[in-house]
Design a protein around this nucleic acid. Sequence first.
DNA 1: TAGATTGTTAATCGATTAACAATC
DNA 2: TAGATTGTTAATCGATTAACAATC
Lengths: 212, 212
Amino acid sequence: MEEKEISQAVIGRLPRYFRYLGELRDEGTERVSSQELSDIMQVTASQIRQDLNNFGGFGQQGYGYNVEFLYEEIGKILGLDRKYDLIIIGAGNLGQALANYMNFERRGFLFRGIFDNNPVLYGKKIRGIEVQSMECMEQYVLDNHIDIAVLTIPKSEAAEVAEKLIRCGIKGIWNFAHLDLKVPEGVQVENVHLSDSLMKLSYNISRFQNEK
Amino acid sequence: MEEKEISQAVIGRLPRYFRYLGELRDEGTERVSSQELSDIMQVTASQIRQDLNNFGGFGQQGYGYNVEFLYEEIGKILGLDRKYDLIIIGAGNLGQALANYMNFERRGFLFRGIFDNNPVLYGKKIRGIEVQSMECMEQYVLDNHIDIAVLTIPKSEAAEVAEKLIRCGIKGIWNFAHLDLKVPEGVQVENVHLSDSLMKLSYNISRFQNEK
DNA sequence: TAGATTGTTAATCGATTAACAATC
DNA sequence: TAGATTGTTAATCGATTAACAATC
């Protein structure tokens, strides 16, 4: 399929469109114009139309967009029309929190396993699934065709673990470890650097206070 | 202090510079040129120099940048040279995980309280601090001059709680609830939308698979 | 002084916004 | 048909990269 590359700026906005459209749909709204959406979302109508037209014409002149239809289409673009088998590496506080946070399951991200190298945790059940030793990880990924690995381990171990996962054919890594993973083309990485996020907040707080 | 506004694109890169410089420092590296940093970080040397010069000239022609000095300076820019009093609203899995994740404390973000409206949790100690009823939140913020509130509550409650916090003079909100908060100027919000992040990952996975 | 590398200006590139013809 | 609103082209704006004079 030959398609022009969509910029990550556009991709980054899709989940937000998806969220607002979902809310409109839940309220029973049938149609929405780019201008109405613009008012709600605080982005320009022009940007909304440009963004959507990267993927095709979902609207109709004189009418606007059908909420249900557009919601579904954006869901498909985001790859939410299929299931992903997902494991969590690192059963610490954050790993367990993510395992228990089950809104992801609703979106098709299926929690299939959780691994740790702390023997104290082995066998502990989290959402019905036992924590396994990290030794079992590679075989488990191969046997169960795992798509996504969530990395919630210290940065010191992350690079090595990621390499193993990649060798076993993992397709995506949701990386909470505080380092930049080096991965071959074809393996997708999405970083959540919590401390970076907190630093941006502290920058904005202290900048605002110095301003006055 | 009259200064030209720095773009959020630049701010967003500062924590990453800070991290790499911290690593260089820990390795004992004394100086680094923009070209060397460029090789390590995979951004252009030009961008590094441009970014840094938004805040002043930290380098020296013919020499480069002193690692320790630049690290400290970026820390100051990010507002890490002071302390922040922080509370967590929502003592569910994620709230508890963040409370326990103590690297933040090292950076000056001091965990001062945690609140929930589930009575089962009241009195439970997390890192030595008892979970309190949400009823106590406002008084606590006022009495203890809390700077930052971490919102790890469902989106249905988030808007109302945020409003209360703002009335009590909170300076920043680290928002994990899946909605866009409306706040007056002067209150800083940093969003961590985990499900948006996961959707970006699924987009990239499914796009890559369709490409072939 | 010669070499290295910054700070900064100028050129390019990409993303956002505006405008409007196409069309429902 | 007239009105509304998209899809899309053109204009603008901002961010990134390249180039080089300043200077350590």
